[in-house]
Design a protein around this nucleic acid. Structure first.
Lengths: 202, 202
DNA sequence: CAAGTGATTTCAGTTTGTGCAATCACCGTA
DNA sequence: TACGGTGATTGCACAAACTGAAATCACTTG
């Protein structure tokens, strides 16, 4: 007979998601999560750096996979390479888990602290993408802008994808978002050098 | 004789910036900040929601000013309106305080928790910008993408502007970043359609 | 001059997060 | 079989972040 029930990490993650969903993030204490997972508070902090981190488990492998796909898409220009990689990851790792991802997304959307953590994860991912592009010959600023633009489209797509009535695939929503972004950013008759302080009304 | 020394908030902000700069964010305790400002820990938490917030004071007025400028630049297309407003705000509120802003930026860059908070502030600002654009007739997704793109350029510009040797103005760096973003996002050989503004890059 | 206001303080308490030592089933090895 | 090492878990003690409630008291207002 094993000394401990297996899958402590998964049990903690599941308990946390349940409790956050039931009563909110702030009203849930770490001791409570641990109790429901039949573990102790101390064990929780052995597995997760802090209370929020319990919701961000699959981040590492997702990031790893994405970077791999980017370096694989060597032929395409930067933004296309990233978007292409994102489509692959969307199909391979997100599309099948739509229910869980949506639930997690709702929990995060309901709490500012969790939103901040997600923004941090996204920023780290952006840096990784930029690094992968830089390794391919992009200048640092260009790499950062391309990575950021791709993440922007990804965010817009996720917003739609996690909507209650939505049925389109994340892949399609991402493609649509990229097209929209290209329209918004690209097709503007802007004059690059207004004399000073703009031709503003008022 | 007044009962308390005036400007408690400013004193706390100054003390916090000093201490974070001297010994880092984590190694600085709230009690320590309060002591240097000749106040108590409880007073600190009366003025700031948490330890990080003490560094993000001028956010509110900056946001307010930016939104006003955006609604003022009614004639321009979305992205240009936002960038134009950002240039005004850069000139009016940032350029003169380069030293302080750079110092604050360095402190934030040195600590993940502070970076998360800044990302949160930036996200909130993005939402405000998107709301202002939406009020002008943009569709929600388009507004979000335009706001995000502008913030992306702004971030890239800030990175350069706060570099040790850098002498160019934030306004110029922002303009340059926007140009770079338009090149990165717009000029892709997948669908080459630059019908106007004949200066095709690459 | 009495009453009210509001920034500050004190105090007691909860929660997060950490360091350290102890437990004890499991595993490989003699 | 015996035996020592490994590693996930736990208990305990503790710093630090935050919170609610009540008290203080210069200043303001009527």
């Amino acid at each position: 007979m094993p000394r401990w029930k297996p899958d402590a990490v998964e049990r903690l993650q599941a308990a946390a998601l349940e409790l956050f969903d039931e009563q909110g993030f702030e009203r849930t204490t770490v001791a409570e999560i641990a109790r429901r997972a039949e573990l102790t508070q101390r064990t929780f902090f052995n597995h997760f750096a802090d209370k929020r981190e319990v919701l961000f488990g699959m981040d590492a492998e997702l990031r790893q996979e994405l970077v791999r796909e980017i370096t694989a898409a060597d032929a395409l220009p930067p933004l296309d390479a990233v978007v292409c990689a994102m489509r692959v990851v969307a199909d391979k790792m997100l599309e099948s888990r739509r229910a869980v991802v949506t639930r997690r997304y709702a929990v995060i959307a309901a709490n500012p602290e969790l939103q901040e953590r997600e923004l941090g994860k996204n920023a780290a991912l952006t840096e990784d993408i930029a690094a992968a592009l830089h390794a391919r010959g992009c200048d640092p600023t260009g790499a950062f802008l391309a990575a950021g633009a791709a993440m922007l489209a990804q965010q817009a797509a996720m917003r739609e994808w996690t909507r209650p009535g939505e049925t389109r695939t994340l892949r399609d929503l991402l493609t649509e978002a990229v097209r929209s972004l290209r329209t918004t950013v690209g097709g503007e008759p802007a004059e690059p050098s207004p004399p000073d302080s703009g031709a503003g009304p008022s």
